[in-house]
Design a protein around this nucleic acid. Structure first.
Length: 592
RNA sequence: UGCCCGAUGGUGUAACGGUAGCACAGCAGACUCUGAAUCUGUUUGUCAUGGUUCAAAUCCAUGUCGGGCAACCA
C-alpha cells in the first residue's frame, strides 16, 4: 500500500486531531438497505474506514433505515457481507461494534435529556464471539428520535401540519407559510402523539420543523421531520407507524453514536444547514458531529445508480446483483477481484469535490497490478485446435517443470504433462499471417512454453475447408531447461496435452456497456448494453487445475486472470474471467 | 429561475503566495520461454478577463462552462 493518503477531508480531520477537539475520531458508513453496495460505496467505505485507521478512530456500519417501504433484510445481509469483505485484514479492527439489542442510554444533564450509545471498545469486547454483534441501525434510535422530536415541539420549533403533500409542495415552493404553522405547543404535542398512536391515515399529517418559510435554501423552508407510514419495518416490525425523515434521523443518529465526522456525498451539501439546525436547536450537551461532503464516483462504461442496477436485475439483463458484470461489490468479488485491488483503486482516485468521470483503465490497472503479484500461472486453451507432433512417440509422456508465479518465488513449481497430441489456441495459428505475427504459421516455428520448439509442417482441413489439425515436428534438442535449449524463436505460445486436459466452463466477461457514459444526455442506458458482455466457452486446462480453489487467483498464461465461480461443482469446473492481460498485439493488430 | 458547489494535460489527482508534480492512458525503445510483467525515454495542462503582489494554479472581482438541490426518498 502506498503512503498515507491525503485529501481535503483528511486535512480537516488531522487539524481536529491536532487541536484535540474530540476525544476520538469516529466516522460512519450509513447505507440505506434498499439495494446492493457498489464500487461507489467502496470509495466511501475506504474513506470512512481509512480515516478511522489513520487517526486511531472507529467507523460504524449503520443501516440508514428510515423508509421501510423500500428496505429489506436481504440488503442488510448483503451490505454487511460486502463491508466485511472489503475491510477484512485492513480495517476490520476499526469497525464499531454493537452488541445485539443494545439501545441508547438516557442521561439527564442540566435538566436536559440526552441519549447516547455507550462506547464499546475492543478491550471490553474481550473474547466474545462475533455472532453477538450486529450493525448499527438508525431504526434502533426511533424511541430517542421521537423523543427529540417532542423536545423540538416543546421548544416551539416544530409543528404538526395538515396540508396535503401537494399543498405542502406548493407552499414550500412559493415560500408561503403553512396555515398550521402557529399551532400551540399543546395542540402540536397532542397531534404528534396521536400520529404516533396511529389515529391518522398515511399522508394526512406530518411533523415539520419551524425554521423559515421563505429561506433561500429550500431545505430550510419548514422541512418535514416525520411522516405517517403504516408499513412494517424490517427491523422494528409493526412498532411504528410514523417514521423520521432522513434529515431528522441522520444527524441525530450521528449524535447518538458519538460520530465526529459525518462524511457524505455532494448532493447533501444543501442539507448541511438543516443538519446543524436540528442539532443546535436541541441544545445538546456533547460536541456536535459535522457533515463533510465529497464527490461520488462515476466510472466509465458503467452505471452506478441503485435504481438502474435494480432495473438490470429485475429485467434479467444480468443474472443477479452479483453478476460478475455488475459494478456491485458482490459482482466485482465474484468476478475475482480482491479487496486489496479495490482499496488501491480507491486510494488512487482520491477524494475531491469535483464531479469527474474516472476512466475504467484506472480500475483495470489496480486489478491487474494486484493479480499479477498473487496469481498462480497455469496453461489453458480457451479455443482449442489440435496439434500433432509427428516425430514424438505416441504413448510417450513427459512431465515438464513449470513456474507457478514468476513474481513470487515462494509459489514454487509444478509439473505439466507433454505428449504427442496437444491443443493450442486457435488465435495462435494463422494460415495467412499478418505482418509481425510471431506465432505459429505454415512452415514457421514457435516455442511451446516449458517444452519444445515446433515447426508447422502441414495444415489439415476437412471437406468444407475447416481447420482440423496441425501436423508439426518438434526440435527434440530444444526442450526448455535442456543443454541445447538456447536456440531462440520469436514466439512462445501456451498449450495443453490433449489426453491429460481437463475441461471447464469458462465465462468470458467484458464491460456491460458499449459507451463510456451509458446514460449520457438522458439516453436509455439499456440501449447501449454490450451484446458481447458474456461469452461462454469450454476450455481445455492443464490437469493441475482440477484442484482449483475458490480463494486462489489464476492467470491462464498469455490470456487473462481467472477465478473459480461458486457455480463450480465437484467434477465441474466453472471459471470467471476477471480481466484480460494487457494485449499489445491485439492493439497493434487492430490498428493495421 | 432561486440557492449551493466546482473548474489543473486525454482521464483522475498534487502543489495551501515562490521550480506546475504523480498515477492511469498514449507514444517510442530495451528486455522477454507470457506480444504480460519489468525498465528507459516521451507528447499533452492551470476555464476567461481584469485586479492585488516583487511574485498568482493558489487571494479578490466579473464572466463562462459543468454539477447538485427545489421527494411525505436517502
Amino acid at each position: 500500500m502506498p503512503a498515507a493518503p491525503s485529501d481535503f477531508i483528511r486535512d480537516i480531520v488531522a487539524a481536529h486531531v491536532a487541536e484535540n477537539i474530540y476525544s476520538r475520531i469516529h466516522t460512519r458508513f450509513p447505507p440505506e438497505p434498499n439495494g446492493y453496495l457498489h464500487i461507489g460505496h467502496a470509495k466511501s467505505i475506504c474513506l470512512n474506514f481509512g480515516i478511522a485507521r489513520e487517526f486511531g478512530g472507529v467507523c460504524n456500519l449503520r443501516m440508514d433505515d428510515t423508509n421501510p417501504a423500500k428496505e429489506d433484510v436481504e440488503y442488510v445481509d448483503s451490505i454487511q457481507a460486502d463491508v466485511n469483505w472489503l475491510i477484512a485484514g485492513w480495517a476490520d479492527d476499526k469497525l464499531g461494534l454493537k452488541p445485539k439489542g443494545m439501545t441508547p442510554e438516557t442521561v439527564a444533564e442540566e435538566g436536559r435529556r440526552d441519549f447516547y450509545l455507550p462506547a464499546v471498545t475492543q478491550s471490553e469486547i474481550g473474547n466474545r464471539k462475533s455472532e453477538i454483534f450486529e450493525p448499527f441501525y438508525a431504526s434502533d434510535y426511533f424511541d430517542q428520535i421521537y423523543d427529540f422530536a417532542e423536545q423540538l415541539v416543546e421548544k416551539g420549533k416544530a409543528f404538526v401540519c395538515d396540508l396535503t403533500p401537494e399543498e405542502t409542495d406548493e407552499y414550500r415552493r412559493n415560500g408561503k407559510a403553512s396555515p398550521f404553522r402557529d399551532r400551540g405547543v399543546e395542540e402540536n404535542l397532542n397531534l404528534f402523539q396521536r400520529m404516533k398512536a396511529g389515529e391518522f391515515t398515511d399522508g394526512s399529517r406530518v411533523l415539520r420543523a419551524k425554521i423559515e418559510v421563505d429561506a433561500a435554501n429550500i431545505w430550510m423552508r419548514d422541512p418535514l421531520l416525520y411522516r405517517i407510514k403504516k408499513t412494517e419495518h424490517h427491523h422494528t416490525g409493526a412498532k411504528w407507524c410514523i417514521y423520521p425523515m432522513y434529515d431528522f434521523a441522520h444527524c441525530l443518529s450521528d449524535y447518538i453514536e458519538g460520530i465526529t465526522h459525518s462524511i457524505c456525498t455532494l448532493e447533501f451539501e444543501v442539507h448541511r444547514p438543516l443538519y446543524d439546525w436540528i442539532l443546535e436547536s436541541l441544545g445538546l450537551p456533547r460536541p456536535l458531529p459535522h457533515q463533510y461532503e465529497f464527490a461520488r464516483l462515476s466510472l466509465g462504461y458503467t452505471v452506478m445508480s441503485k435504481r438502474k442496477l435494480m432495473q438490470l436485475v429485475d429485467e434479467k439483463l444480468v443474472t443477479g446483483w452479483d453478476d460478475p458484470r455488475m459494478p456491485t461489490i458482490s459482482g466485482i468479488r465474484r468476478r475475482g477481484v480482491t479487496p486489496e485491488a479495490l482499496r488501491n483503486f480507491a486510494y488512487n482516485i482520491g477524494i475531491t469535490k469535483y464531479n469527474g468521470l474516472t476512466d475504467v483503465s484506472v480500475l483495470e490497472f489496480a486489478i491487474r497490478e494486484d493479480l499479477n503479484k498473487r496469481s498462480l500461472r497455469r496453461l489453458a486453451v480457451l479455443r482449442p485446435i489440435k496439434v500433432v507432433i509427428t516425430n514424438y512417440a505416441a504413448g510417450q509422456v513427459e512431465e515438464l517443470e513449470a513456474v507457478n508465479n514468476p513474481e513470487d518465488e515462494t509459489a514454487g513449481k509444478r509439473k505439466i504433462p507433454f505428449s504427442r497430441e496437444l491443443y493450442i489456441e486457435r488465435e495462435d495459428f494463422a494460415e495467412v499471417p499478418p505482418p509481425k505475427f510471431f506465432r505459429l504459421k505454415p512452415g514457421g516455428e514457435v516455442r511451446l512454453k516449458y517444452a519444445y520448439i515446433i515447426k508447422c509442417e502441414e495444415v489439415v482441413k476437412d471437406a468444407a475447408g475447416n481447420l482440423v489439425e496441425l501436423r508439426c515436428t518438434a526440435d527434440l534438442d530444444s526442450k526448455s531447461g535442456g543443454a541445447t535449449s538456447n536456440r531462440k524463436v520469436k514466439g512462445t505460445i501456451h498449450w495443453v496435452s490433449a489426453a491429460h486436459a481437463v475441461e471447464a466452463e469458462v465465462r468470458l466477461y467484458d464491460r456491460l456497456f458499449t459507451e463510456a457514459e451509458p446514460d449520457k444526455d438522458g439516453r436509455d442506458f439499456k440501449s447501449v448494453l454490450n451484446p458481447h458482455s458474456l461469452e461462454v466457452v469450454t476450455a481445455k486446462l492443464e490437469p493441475s487445475l482440477k484442484d482449483a480453489r475458490p480463494e486462489v487467483r489464476y492467470q491462464f498464461e498469455r490470456l487473462a486472470y481467472f477465478a473459480l465461480d461458486y457455480d463450480a461443482q465437484p467434477g465441474k469446473l466453472v471459471f470467471n474471467r476477471t480481466i484480460t492481460l494487457k494485449d499489445a498485439w491485439a492493439k497493434a493488430a487492430q490498428k493495421s
